[in-house]
């Protein structure tokens, strides 16, 4: 095969995927940025260039700041807790354990359920008065709590659901990594008299760093991408207390049809996502030990 023919083959093989990728990922991303500098066309009025007008609106939008802080706390709690739980689960399931099959199944099962179904199940737990949580706490004499209706509690209630759904998924990656650690290391450590905690801190944990990096980048992306449960459980309420950025974008774009402002919000989301993912990569990369 001559070089020219190889070029043509390469491009031809690539072109169908590339066309769709550009049409539904790269062009929309650029159009989102472009659109954020224009006003939303309404009726007879076409879109007109407003410069940074939408960004000024954004800075003055109290709901945006509320949603921004919700997203921040949602990520700050969900990511470390689900990653730490995933590691703990993986270590338990990897070791000798009675009934390991069931335990692993229990941890992983939430992962295969649709988030929308998960939300329905949890709704029932949170229902004030006769939900499971209230029934248990009621048996101990605690007053009934409206978990999803209280602005101080709604976000926390939603975070619990996200952790329940995610931890088992991340566990799988840790499990794969744990199983690739050579058993000789464990034997050597035992001869040296290292206890379990030292072994974990000095050997297991550093060796798991690439997995931790992979899992936490995924966790960051998921914390912005997965908002399905908000639709069922709280609809962003009460008073936007549990609204997340992508949910707010949906509301602005498809309830109020303010597409220009929705584009502006999407730009913020994309910037946040890139900064976090890239930052995390460099932060954790220094401590990753590649073999």
């Amino acid at each position: 095969m001559t070089r020219r023919v190889e070029w043509i083959y390469g491009w031809l093989l690539l072109s169908p995927a590339l066309v769709l990728l550009i049409a539904f990922t790269h062009l929309p991303a650029l159009n989102t940025l472009w659109g954020s500098f224009f006003s939303t066309p309404r009726g007879q009025r076409p879109a007109k260039f407003v410069g940074l007008g939408n960004y000024e609106t954004l800075l003055a939008d109290e709901t945006f700041w509320q949603v921004f802080s919700n997203s921040f706390w949602y990520a700050v709690v969900t990511i470390p807790v689900s990653v730490a739980l995933a590691l703990l689960m993986a270590i338990w399931v990897d070791g000798k354990l009675a009934g390991r099959g069931f335990v692993r199944l229990a941890y992983f099962a939430p992962t295969v359920l649709p988030l929308i179904a998960v939300a329905n199940i949890w709704m029932f737990f949170y229902t004030p008065g006769f939900g499971l949580i209230d029934q248990i706490s009621g048996a101990f004499g605690f007053p009934s709590v409206n978990w999803l209706g209280d602005p101080d509690l709604a976000l926390g209630a939603v975070i619990v659901v996200a952790i329940w759904k995610e931890a088992g998924f991340f566990m799988i990656f840790y499990l794969a990594a744990l199983q690739s650690i050579p058993p000789q290391l464990r034997e050597a450590a035992a001869i040296e008299g290292a206890d379990r905690w030292t072994f974990f801190r000095r050997i297991t944990f550093p060796l798991l760093m690439p997995t931790t990096l992979f899992v936490s980048v995924n966790a960051v992306i998921n914390s912005f991408r997965l908002v399905d449960h908000i639709f069922v459980m709280t609809d962003g309420g009460p008073d936007n207390a549990s609204s997340l950025l992508l949910f707010y974008i949906y509301e602005i774009a498809f309830k109020f049809w303010d597409t220009a402002y929705a584009s502006t919000l999407t730009v913020v989301l994309l910037v946040l996502l890139s900064v976090l993912a890239v930052g995390q990569f460099f932060l954790l990369d220094k401590r990753v030990h590649y073999r």
């Binding site: 995927a17 590339l18 990728l21 539904f24 990922t25 790269h26 062009l27 929309p28 991303a29 159009n31 989102t32 659109g35 992306i221 912005f224 991408r225 992508l246 974008i249 949906y250 774009a253 498809f254 597409t259 929705a262 584009s263 999407t266 989301l269 994309l270 996502l273 890139s274 993912a277």
Partner: peptide, 18 residues
Amino acid sequence: LVLLQLLVMPDILIVENY
């Protein structure tokens, strides 16, 4: 450009894709 999609997913670009 292909790998960029792992970060910038269609899930987020709902306005333009619609």
